[in-house]
Design a protein around this nucleic acid. Structure first.
Lengths: 169, 169
DNA sequence: TATTTATGTCAGTCATGTTGACATATTTCG
DNA sequence: CGAAATATGTCAACATGACTGACATAAATA
């Protein structure tokens, strides 16, 4: 956006670099979701189930409201997949201690198993990419993606030392 | 994947770093698609239309088969959105010169308008992220994402000098 | 006590992915 | 040349996961 946008004038080199970044995100995301999608299909689950299992695994005792805020979907959409995961024993809910309206979410052992299966190909893919690219590149990758994230609150999820405290850490 | 996966043992620091990378991709992709999605909704279009307009804009004279290979969806899925874009005058098709079975795809002026509108928020977001992160970080971002992409053919789309030759460059 | 909040649920719609079957035009192979 | 393979299009049925809108309940808060 440092360029003035005049139609029928060649895009600048800068524009080409930015458009390649956009395309990189498309291809990387496409491939990064393909393997878990295949595993999910065997359970008759979809990508939405993966997202729920991922975030509940990362942040045990998360409330339904927090999950809605992260996923940015409606509660009706969430409740379909969350309900399936609860009924099939992947997630348990229990009332909040201070606020008894809240339903705190947690993976069961079966849920942790599923999470490990789903994340295994993603972890392998990202770990291999990190290894090939090197530590400096990883730092750049983090910096750029953090700045692509719109909300400061969401960026703060990645502040140093604030990793996903898994229940058995 | 340099770690041995023993259940009920704390994930390593390495694992935490990789899991943060996975999560960064989720949040960045979520925010990176939100603004174009809102514009698409005003046209009664969805994200699939955006992908088609993006790639046809980047690679004019692309064939239907090439587009299918990039999007990794079925021709039936593609034909629904492609048909809408053609009937509404965003894309024109014409027979290939050498192979007359092919339908070469190209944006109309109306299509280029739509492409610019849809990509504007994404270009602004990525350009701002690049600016804030710095040139070295951008190089790292590219390196990591290239290695996340599974197919060498798709990675080669980003070889130096092989930018998307827009028709009016 | 009245209101707001956190959550759940019913019902209907839409976009976009899938599979499977079949059609047509064109190119390529034996 | 004729048969097979290829590029594309189309019909139909179905699943997933978004959406809106309306309404319900329990618990916290003003």
């Amino acid at each position: 956006m440092t360029d003035i946008n005049i139609p029928d004038v060649p895009p600048s080199l800068h524009d080409e670099e930015v458009r390649q970044g956009i395309e990189l995100l498309f291809f990387a995301y496409r491939d990064f979701t393909a393997e878990p999608d295949a595993i999910l299909a065997r359970h008759s689950f979809g990508r939405a189930h993966h997202r729920v299992v991922h975030f509940v695994g990362r942040r045990p005792q998360m409330t339904v409201g927090e999950l809605l805020g992260i996923l940015r979907i409606t509660k009706q959409s969430l409740n379909r997949v969350l309900g399936q995961l609860v009924r099939q024993g992947f997630i348990v809910q229990h009332r909040g201690a201070q606020d008894r309206r809240q339903r705190l979410l947690e993976l069961t052992e079966k849920g942790r198993d599923l999470e490990r299966q789903l994340s295994a190909p993603q972890r392998a893919r990202v770990a291999a990419a990190y290894r090939k690219a090197g530590a400096g590149a990883v730092e750049g990758f983090r910096k750029v993606l953090l700045n692509v994230i719109a909300s400061p609150d969401d960026r703060h999820r990645f502040d140093r030392g604030r990793g996903g405290r898994r229940s058995h850490d």
